[in-house]
Design a protein around this nucleic acid. Structure first.
Length: 491
RNA sequence: GGCGCGGUACCCAAGUGGUAAGGGAGAGGUCUGCAAAACCUUUAUGCGGGAGUUCGAUUCUCCCCCGCGCCUCCA
């Protein structure tokens, strides 16, 4: 089976064929930087990350552009509330977003662009739309005339030909010819940031930035555009209208939309106030990789109901994965090899590739790797696994992890580096179980104490050995005595 | 009202016209100085309800029930 995606535009799963062989040009809608992103936002960003990783895995050269919306009603309002200039205010949350991305192991797109760096480009496209008769001016603002673009509604499968009864017009804010028309350029208001342009003094509307920046870096027609399902209408519908009206060419070939993250069965959103940021969860002692695992484990087109219990389960699953990886890497096996295991590892690889080829079915890809783990453990327990089989299994895990990006536990290092781990500060109590303070001991110190415990064990001083183990546990470090030696984990 | 998504074991969650992946949790077992951890085994005659098509449906069709999303703030 070849790589296929569900395309919102056609409503079907379609084989993916990029415009240019071997190259993929894709645009993803990034955050509006007026606060910390919440994990609902990150569900989409994790999906987009898995998408770009898998495209690369499949041998494509990926040119990925992501935008940052740094001017809109929300950013302006919050910047004013904070008493900061817009640019200064948004810079803080852009930085926070980058920190969160690093914690979640999200790859950096080839091009990251800010709306306010592209005002002139947007003005040019709006001028083109005016020249071609798709846009009009009203009280210093400019609007796209939806009626002039017959294909309007093709993405969201909505028929706008009839007059909608009860449609409300926000005429108190702006003057539009029709309720459906959307703003391209907003006339300056007192006290708001504004740019002096040939269109007059004002600021861009939200939708125009994505059209302009995507086409600037990717061309007038490109392969993939993705975002959360709430962007289908009106944002992406409007992008299509603006872009295709301006160029006369198809805008995007494959539209990919992720379903929402819910909490208690309701969409997680800032307006509902029912959201968790990454930082909220870290403060409660949860690991960023566990969050990534959870967000990645449900296929992107399925709703995902977020619970702390679910996050705990994700953490446990991740431990199982890492335990096997550790055992595979560290345990001593008899010399030789068993060809059946090389074949088994290869089969597992094909299974997860087939799963991901099918519209990025991450749940099946997980099943493929867990089946390999179980069979590997059994073979090791029964003494059938050979030293020469190690490489094949490691290779399968490594390839799987190129997509999932959760196998290595760098959480503690990253949290420390990024200033999240305070010396001697205890973790919270996430699920009713008290947790010992974590992060106060360096890896070197832990290793040293393990050495000391080993010596105590060898001379039969189990009282001392158990004391060290207990002390480490109280410092948030769990010891495991395995055949391959003593292993430690931070809790 | 229009459009769309979902309802699978205690929890999370795949999937197929031919008889239910995987993970968590629970239970049993193995290993270990001890404990912990780890590992193995095990847990749905059943896939929201009803009718139909079929040799056979959880999977297709129709009707119904429930939850959620979008319908110019929103990943």
């Amino acid at each position: 089976m070849s790589l296929s995606f569900f395309n919102t535009l056609t409503g079907k799963v379609e084989e993916f064929k990029p415009l240019e062989q071997g190259h993929v040009r894709m645009y993803t809608c990034g955050p509006t930087v007026y606060g910390f992103a919440h994990i609902g936002n990150f569900r989409t960003f994790v999906f987009q990350d898995i998408l770009r990783r898998y495209l690369k895995y499949r041998g494509y050269e990926v040119l990925h552009v992501m935008n940052v919306t740094d001017v809109d009603d929300n950013t302006i309002r919050n910047a004013q509330a904070a008493g900061l200039a817009l640019r200064e205010f948004t810079a803080r949350y852009i930085e926070a977003f980058q920190v969160d991305r690093e914690l979640l192991n999200l790859e950096t797109p080839e091009v990251v662009v800010r709306a306010t760096d592209h005002i002139a480009d947007m003005v040019k496209v709006i001028e083109t739309l005016i020249e071609k008769g798709f846009a009009y001016e009203s009280n210093g603002s400019y609007y796209f005339r939806v009626q002039s673009f017959p294909a309007y509604g093709k993405l969201s499968r909505t028929d706008f030909s009839g007059i909608r009864a009860g449609a409300r017009v926000d005429a108190d804010k702006y003057d539009k010819d029709s309720a459906r028309d959307f703003v391209l350029w907003k006339a300056a208001k007192p006290g708001e940031p504004a740019w002096d342009t040939p269109l007059g003094r004002g600021r861009p509307g939200w939708h125009i930035e994505c059209s302009v920046m995507s086409m600037k870096y990717l061309g007038e027609t490109f392969d993939i555009h993705s975002g959360g399902s709430d962007l289908i209408f009106p944002h992406h519908e409007n992008e299509i209208a603006q872009s295709e009206a301006a160029t006369g060419k198809p805008f995007v070939r494959y539209w990919l939309h992720s379903e929402h993250l819910t909490v208690n069965g309701e969409k997680m959103s800032k307006s509902l106030g029912n959201f968790y940021t990454l930082r909220d969860l870290i403060a409660q002692g949860y690991k960023p990789t566990a969050i990534r695992y959870l967000l990645a484990s449900v296929p992107f087109r399925k709703p995902l109901n977020f619970t702390l219990d679910g996050l705990h389960q994700a953490q446990q699953s991740l431990d199982r994965l890492r335990n096997f990886h550790y055992r595979l890497a560290m345990e001593k096996f008899p010399a030789g090899e068993n060809p059946a295991f090389a074949e088994r590892a290869r089969a597992a690889r094909l299974e997860f590739e087939t799963a991901l080829d099918d519209d990025l079915n991450t749940a099946e890809a997980l099943a493929a790797i867990f089946n390999l783990i179980r069979e590997g453990n059994t073979a090791m327990d029964q003494g059938e696994f050979r030293a020469g089989d190690r490489g094949d299994f490691l290779d399968a895990l490594k390839r799987w992890n190129q997509i999932f990006g959760v196998l290595d536990d760098k959480d503690h290092e990253k949290l420390r580096k990024l200033g999240f781990v305070q010396e001697s500060e205890p973790c919270g109590i996430p699920d009713g179980h008290p947790r010992p303070p974590a992060g106060t001991l360096s890896s070197q110190e832990i290793e040293r104490q393990i050495q000391e415990r080993e010596q105590a064990r060898r001379r039969g001083d189990y009282a001392r050995a158990d004391q060290i183990r207990q002390e480490l546990l109280e410092a948030g470090v769990l010891l495991e005595d395995t055949k391959a030696g003593t292993r430690w984990k931070r809790r």
